[in-house]
Amino acid sequence: MLEVKDLSISFIQYQKGLKKRTLKVISNLDVTINSGEILAIVGSSGSGKSLLAHAVLGVLPKNAVVSGEIIYKGMPLTPKLQKRLRGNEISLIPQSVNFLDPLMKVGAQVQASVNTGDKKEEQKSIFKRYSLDEKTGIKFPFQLSGGMARRVLFASAVIGGAKLIIADEPTPGLHPEVVKETLQHLRELADQGCAVMLITHDIGTAINVADNIAVFYSGTTVEVAPASNFSGNGEHLKHPYTKALWNALPQNSFIPISGFQPSYEERKGCFFHQRCSTRSQDCLSKMPKIREIDSGKVRCHNAT
């Protein structure tokens, strides 16, 4: 459904004295999502998760410079095609319920995403699917509970017949029952044939619903692995960062990783080499290529 190959994103900035600089924030990023699959994208803040979503949707700012390929259903995802598909075949479920218009009744907001047929009937049907009472449609967002507002966002995203769903941090701060319900809805969409990109900080949440997990670090993909590999002490994981991230969780070893993600100006070689205990000389100067290994992919010179 979606294939991202060697994606790089830079931003042109002007500093004091009108000095121009180009800041490369995403480098050689690769992901693939198939129909009927949930790909969870995890990583720390600043690792490029949301920028990838914006690149797919075609909503990057004007000072962005993009290279690489984004392919949707075998076709290059050009700006013209993005504009046609955005909100229709490609849809976003945003992180915050504040994306709902506070001055507009939620029924009308959902109807605005209907492309064909009777808008009111389509809205009633999708509300029924997500266990929303018919009277919910005449309410404003502030009159909804968190769970209801989340279901309205889902309804708005899928009512147009979307085939690729991008869910950007849909669960932080929600009650556990609402989190469970949200993940169940994502799983249902995938089981119905959609491709789902789930962006999250929470690996524990991701492994409960995702088929595969892509780990981002400092603007690139370091590993893509089946969710089942995230178990035990991480012995099935290949990249040192992925293992460290897994073992830093409270329910696992709760061992923090020392150091910090490098700034954009400091990145060279393997971006993780300054924090890696198994680095070799190649890691200091050469960016490793992503390669297939066992059931996944890894960007590491020394992974076996």
Rank of each mutant, 00 (worst) to 15 (best):
R267C: 05
K120D: 10
L183W: 00
K286Y: 07
V179Y: 02
I213G: 03
A214W: 03
Q95M: 11
N302F: 03
D168Q: 01
R151H: 00
L29P: 05
I213W: 01
S113T: 14
N233H: 14
P240I: 13
L103W: 02
F254Y: 14
A112P: 01
I9G: 09
S145A: 05
S47F: 02
L39I: 12
A155L: 10
Y130H: 10
K120M: 08
I70E: 11
R299K: 09
K24H: 13
N88K: 13
E89N: 15
E37T: 09
S35W: 10
H239Q: 11
A227G: 12
A53Y: 04
N115I: 10
H175P: 01
S231D: 09
G161H: 04
N28Y: 01
M197T: 06
L174K: 01
G161N: 06
G147K: 00
L60I: 09
I138E: 15
T304R: 08
E89C: 09
F11E: 11
T32K: 14
D202P: 06
G46W: 11
V179E: 11
A225M: 07
L81C: 11
G147E: 01
N98M: 07
A40T: 00
S156C: 14
P172K: 01
F216Q: 09
E266H: 12
A149G: 13
K19M: 13
P79Y: 07
M104C: 13
L103P: 06
S131H: 12
L103H: 07
A64V: 14
F154P: 00
D168R: 01
V31S: 03
E235L: 05
D211S: 10
F272I: 04
E69T: 05
I38V: 09
M104S: 12
S35I: 02
G87M: 11
V215S: 00
S295Y: 14
K24P: 09
F154Q: 00
L153F: 12
K120I: 13
V56D: 13
H301G: 06
Y14W: 09
G146I: 08
E121W: 03
V298L: 07
E188K: 13
A55L: 15
V224C: 07
I203V: 14
V222P: 03
F142T: 09
S10R: 13
I165G: 12
D191M: 07
H273A: 14
V215C: 00
R187T: 09
P226W: 00
G107H: 03
A53K: 04
F140K: 14
V179N: 02
I257S: 15
I26E: 02
T221L: 04
Y72R: 15
V158T: 14
L103Q: 06
N115C: 08
V66A: 10
L23I: 15
K243Q: 14
M1E: 10
Q184F: 02
I199A: 08
E223K: 10
K135Q: 12
K163I: 12
R21G: 03
K16M: 13
P94R: 09
V110N: 01
R150M: 03
L186T: 05
K20F: 09
I41E: 07
C283D: 01
Q184G: 10
